[in-house]
Design a binder for these strands. Structure first.
Length: 202
DNA sequence: AGCACGATGCTCT
DNA sequence: GAGCATCGTGCTT
């Protein structure tokens, strides 16, 4: 029983800014309670190394951020604000802490289930998509290049450079420059016309 | 349409 | 004990 077509480790074993851009348009897929759910990734952010003062690895390796120091293509899932789970894809060589935060998806498979899990609301936001797909601590450290854990990313739509908007990362208000303002957030343009978001507005 | 704020608990100092 | 890679509500324009 083989299914799915996960992006390989080599995809993630590259400069994080490249991976963050190329993840736009790919399909984040989850098997939850035997049902397949999936959404097109439409927004990402890059977090790159111990020098990046916005990155969790800024103070070195800890129990929490350890997965970022491991193999590329693995999921770094962490908990924040007392209630939210964030999904990242680890990038670059083993030993170098970097990852891409998946910030938004537009659901394309299992849309009704996702809508119910979100109580009819949208999935644009890192904690929102985790809630929509049932992503939590149990998925921290799993291999995204294998379908075994029920979470992977596969090729999807092509997104050209001209269709990518970049800007500062979100929520780094207390972080020092230049890290606070460096444009390492990437979003598919135009940002308003995704089918699921349309549906949520009704 | 936009802003302010409270929720809520884990991680690291 | 402080700070958080956020979200939803409720109140103001």
């Amino acid at each position: 029983m083989k299914f799915g077509n996960p992006l390989p480790l080599e995809f993630y074993d590259r400069p994080t800014l490249i991976v963050a851009r190329e993840l736009l348009g790919t399909r984040l897929t989850r098997i939850l309670d035997g049902e397949q759910l999936a959404g097109i990734i439409i927004e990402t952010e890059a977090y790159i190394g111990e020098e990046d003062m916005g990155c969790h690895a800024k103070a070195g390796k800890t129990k929490r951020n350890g997965v970022m120091y491991g193999l590329p293509g693995h999921a770094y899932v962490y908990f924040t604000y007392g209630m939210h789970w964030m999904l990242n894809a680890v990038t670059e060589r083993e030993g170098f802490p970097a990852a891409v935060l998946i910030r938004a998806i537009d659901p394309v498979v299992g849309v009704d289930i996702i809508s119910t899990r979100r109580q009819g609301r949208d999935t644009a936001g890192p904690a929102k998509l985790s809630r929509a797909l049932g992503i939590d601590k149990s998925l921290n450290g799993v291999d995204l290049c294998d379908t075994g854990a029920g979470l992977w990313i596969e090729p999807g739509a092509e997104v050209g450079e001209d269709d990518i908007i970049s800007g500062p990362r979100v929520g780094l208000d207390t972080v020092a420059e230049p890290w606070k303002s460096i444009p390492w957030r990437f979003r598919v343009s135009p940002p308003a016309i995704f089918p699921y978001e349309e549906r949520c507005r009704k």
